[in-house]
Design a protein around this nucleic acid. Sequence first.
DNA 1: AAAGATTGTTGTTGACGACAACAATTGATG
DNA 2: CATCAATTGTTGTCGTCAACAACAATCTTT
Lengths: 174, 174
Amino acid sequence: MATRQKTSRKAAATAAAIRRARTANGRAHNSDAGDDIGLDALIGHAGYAVRRFQLWIFQDFIKTLATVDIRPTQYSVMTVIGANPGLSQMAVAKRLGIERARLVHLLDSLEERDFVSRIPSATDRRSHALHLTARGKTALAQFKRLAAEHERHVAEKIGKDNREQLLQILACFT
Amino acid sequence: MATRQKTSRKAAATAAAIRRARTANGRAHNSDAGDDIGLDALIGHAGYAVRRFQLWIFQDFIKTLATVDIRPTQYSVMTVIGANPGLSQMAVAKRLGIERARLVHLLDSLEERDFVSRIPSATDRRSHALHLTARGKTALAQFKRLAAEHERHVAEKIGKDNREQLLQILACFT
DNA sequence: AAAGATTGTTGTTGACGACAACAATTGATG
DNA sequence: CATCAATTGTTGTCGTCAACAACAATCTTT
């Protein structure tokens, strides 16, 4: 085991410990599968199901768009800017529910890759008008094709109808 | 503005910039609300809706259980251990889809608060048999009541029927 | 002109997922 | 039985992300 084991390995095993160890391994005589372990109250918790689902869906998105090296948040930023050129950073941050502090770094990387440009606003010298570059526009078109492919993966995973129901149920959050 | 503004504030504003700035602010003459900004392709992306929903649901969970200072992951760990006493760390990690490296810290904090105890396994001296302490059991009972209250918030937010549909759709991830 | 709000920026903190190593131990293979 | 591969808990690092708190520049209000 590890170096800083808290309880000595040689410590006497209590009868309770033995009993429980039996319970744990004996339940289906196959603890490797990780199955047959009850979740108890976790079943019926929307948060848990949603967390697991989001993990899966983000991993698939990242994998599907790995060739273009675009992550979900970057994609959402470019999509909103593409659909609403000239938005300020505040407006984009509010719309997507991300912090403006975080958006700074996101835009930095997108600007470095020449996908987005910050143009000083003519009406408010504090703010930037965000635009896609020409390169950004063609790139986004490709991203959307890959994202659509990812969306098909989702439909395969949970079912076409279920996916649409999901979108409808969660529409109030978009 | 900030100290390290990339483009000089005094830089001449192009006609295009002016036009777009007008577009951004003029769309509904109220850019504060953050409304009326199209999401374009983002609508119809399950990942985006799920991300927003998970953000909301986790924040509500944390808020609802703030008095007991329990986060969603900690709650899931205690719930699984409570329902399956004697599990090894590997088994818990696999079942919940968290890394065993991460579970180490989670258990450290839960053990410090005397909610969980690592008992050396009688059959495998590498592994620990995880158990709730007496204090952990009574605490978990309270956590479950608060979690149920949080779940009611979810039902209020998306609707009782929708919540159940959601759980059914995502059941394959739990 | 002064006071307060807004915008972009920087920095810090903490939770979290992913990986890579490692010692101790177990299991399998010869 | 001896050896080698696999497993388990642990430590560490890295990068992403949300949440805050400060700050300078600028706008708005009065």
